[in-house]
Amino acid sequence: MTNHPSTPAVQFNKVNRYFGEVKAVDEVDLEIRDGEFFAMLGPSGSGKTTCLRMIAGFDRPTGGSIYLYGQDVSNLPPYERSVNTVFQDYALFPHMNVGDNIAYGLMVKKVPKPERKKRVDEMLDLVQLKGFDSRKPSQLSGGQRQRVALARALINHPKVLLLDEPLGALDLKLRQQMQVELKAIQQRVGITFIFVTHDQEEAITMSDRIAVFNHGKIEQIGSPSEIYEKPATTFVAGFVGTSNLIGGELAKRLTGSDQTFSIRPEKIHVSTTEKTTTIDTITLDGVVRDVVYLGLYTRYLVEADGVDIVVIEQNLKTTSMDVVSAKGQKVRLSWHKDHISRIGA
């Protein structure tokens, strides 16, 4: 997907959005490629939703421009943009049945009734809700409403589909199922999906690329593995997954540089015996402060040189309990030198 030659689906050019004194979006530059499944990830108040709302046209930038396939849409009302949105609360019209909800976009564009009917049926097929057209939204479950909202947006063949925390209101099982389904639907219809989420796991599972937002700025844009393996800032390292940040004297001793480094808990091995180490291995001695058994894995909190380090060890052997089980035990941590990454590298 790198160096895609075509025009970007969405482009932000130094976009600002102020609410009074608050800079909700602060000089954001962004390029979302055609056909991409793109995630805007960040905590609440980080500006991700405001960015989405500006693409939809519900909000206008205070400064800068937004382009949709090369066209400046910064000042176009929502009804003149070929962008559709799946709302967080689904925003289904309660006074219309499912069929009329899905057909709404075609109805306001005065598409003839038979054509509308045909396309509604296609959409109901796509989201697996055949035969639900005469139900009212209030008679549907959360997951079904979600599908109706999706169908209502997709029936207009938008160039870009926006999804605002699309799975936030669903329970875990349904969420995981919808993650897979959304991805499949996106590949079938082949349009650009942009979705906003605060759930890093969801962003990693579903998207081609992720933009991590914090305080109205983008901290990092990259593929899920880039974001996870090479976090650009300490914020990204902490927000996406768990990270051990090592800096100062300890970093200098371990790596020769006193900049800040990040190492993921699962990359570290913990052992009581002094294993023979290769030249590529970095080791660190510490004391176990806490052990939490979590079924699939065990989490250790080890204090080394006054720094708390979280280690996750998969419970591959039933005997792994034997390895370290006592608090206060002296242990040796070790990891491959490629697994520690310098922040911003």
């Binding site: 939809a56 046209g57 929502p78 962008v83 949105t85 709302f87 967080q88 709404y104 306001v108 947006a153």
Partner: peptide, 13 residues
């Protein structure tokens, strides 16, 4: 809800 008004506008109304 405001989102209903936004949804209508989003869908081209």
């Amino acid at each position: 809800p405001n989102s209903l008004v936004e949804a209508a506008s989003d869908l081209g109304a």
